[in-house]
Amino acid sequence: IRDAALRLRDTKDCNVGLNGLRLFEKLTSAIYTTDSKNTNCLGGMVAGKKKDVTSGTLYNLLAACLDSMPDGVGSNPTPLSYSPLFITKWIDYSNKYGFGYQLSDQSVGVFFNDLTRISISHDKSRVEFHDNNGRLSIVSPSTLPAWLQERYHLLRYVASYMDENLSEAGETTNVTTTSSGNTSNSSNNSSTSSTSSSGDGSNNNSNGNNKANSSSGGSSNSQTVPHVRRWDRTPKSIIMQLSNGTFQINFFKDHTKIIVSGERSSEEACLLYINSDRVSSTFKLSHVASSGCDGAIRERLVYALSCLRQYAELDGEEV
């Protein structure tokens, strides 16, 4: 795994045109499981509820947003001062093991090819393992059972590789209020985007850059770490969906990213957009629906809507 991973640093960026952001290729990924059990203590499992933030839910929210927003708007609503949890780094090693990723709260996970998943919390105190039936076990790193040791070592290696070789996907846009009441945006130096075996950006290390703040869904002692539920790769983009419903698309050519948080209403849902300069801004979906947005975001929302429709159909949802 080390030799294969080190070769990733020498790969070049994909330079695939968006072609109007039409989704020419049919998404066929069904690589996901619905969590059927949760845990409320280290090592113990209890029955839990299924997640109800589905692809169909987000499709309906996004479709309503696009239908409602006014035409010909060249600006965006006032950004929020926080961002939803999203994927800041990823590595595609599915030719052998699976898909590794880091979230904006610094938790890390691997989605293995056998549909099992392992994650470690941002404070490195909890290891979570989902088997391929959706059952969840939580242990501390110091008490790992023997059967989990190999996967944990792979998780640590993936985390170390991403930490040493990949930089964060985007910077937060800090929103401050001036004395006149107008909002002004400031951001730190932007960092390069994450990469994979075929390249989604450059592999520069980023030191001292501020990470995007998580408004919800982050891991803590009382919450499980959101994990990658499914992912797809097309010539234009990589598409990822977290277990909390959050839906993310990273575009290869210009390194822009669009993230819709996994919520059940447009008042709750947030839209995070990371532009080609790696500067991010977060908006309430309801504000985008009422005020509109610039053409770049709108195009990517149309693309996201097409992807969500296909995912919803794969899941047997009517949209």
Rank of each mutant, 00 (worst) to 15 (best):
Ser216Thr: 12
Gly217Phe: 01
Gly218Ala: 13
Gly218Trp: 04
Ser219Thr: 14
Ser220His: 10
Asn221Ser: 09
Asn221Ile: 07
Gln223Lys: 09
Pro226Phe: 03
Pro226Gly: 07
His227Arg: 10
His227Trp: 12
His227Pro: 00
His227Leu: 13
Val228Lys: 05
Val228Gln: 04
Val228Met: 05
Arg229Tyr: 11
Arg229Asn: 10
Asp232Val: 14
Pro235Cys: 10
Ser237Pro: 04
Ile238Glu: 02
Gln241Trp: 01
Ser243Gln: 09
Ser243Met: 02
Gly245Phe: 07
Gly245Met: 11
Thr246Ile: 05
Phe247Leu: 03
Phe247Ala: 00
Gln248Gly: 01
Gln248Val: 03
Asn250Trp: 08
Phe251Ile: 08
Phe251Cys: 09
Lys253Leu: 14
Thr256Gln: 14
Ile259Asn: 04
Ser261Phe: 06
Ser261Glu: 06
Ser261Leu: 02
Ser261Ile: 06
Gly262Gln: 00
Glu263Asn: 15
Glu263Lys: 14
Glu263Ser: 12
Arg264Gln: 13
Arg264His: 11
Glu268Cys: 05
Glu268Tyr: 09
Ala269Met: 02
Leu271Thr: 00
Leu271Gln: 02
Leu271Phe: 07
Leu272Ala: 08
Tyr273Cys: 00
Ser276Glu: 06
Asp277Lys: 15
Arg278Gly: 13
Arg278Leu: 12
Ser280Phe: 11
Thr282Pro: 02
Lys284Cys: 06
Ser286Gln: 14
Ser286Arg: 10
Ser286Asp: 10
Ala289Leu: 01
Ser291His: 12
Ser291Cys: 13
Gly292Phe: 03
Gly292Cys: 07
Asp294Asn: 11
Gly295His: 13
Gly295Ser: 12
Ala296Val: 11
Glu299Ser: 14
Leu301Pro: 00
Leu301Glu: 09
Val302Cys: 13
Tyr303Glu: 15
Leu305Ile: 02
Ser306Pro: 07
Ser306Met: 13
Leu308Asp: 06
Arg309Asp: 07
Gln310Thr: 09
Tyr311His: 09
Ala312Leu: 12
Leu314Gln: 10
Asp315Cys: 12
Gly316Leu: 05
Glu317Leu: 02
Glu317Tyr: 00
Glu318Lys: 11
Glu318Gln: 13
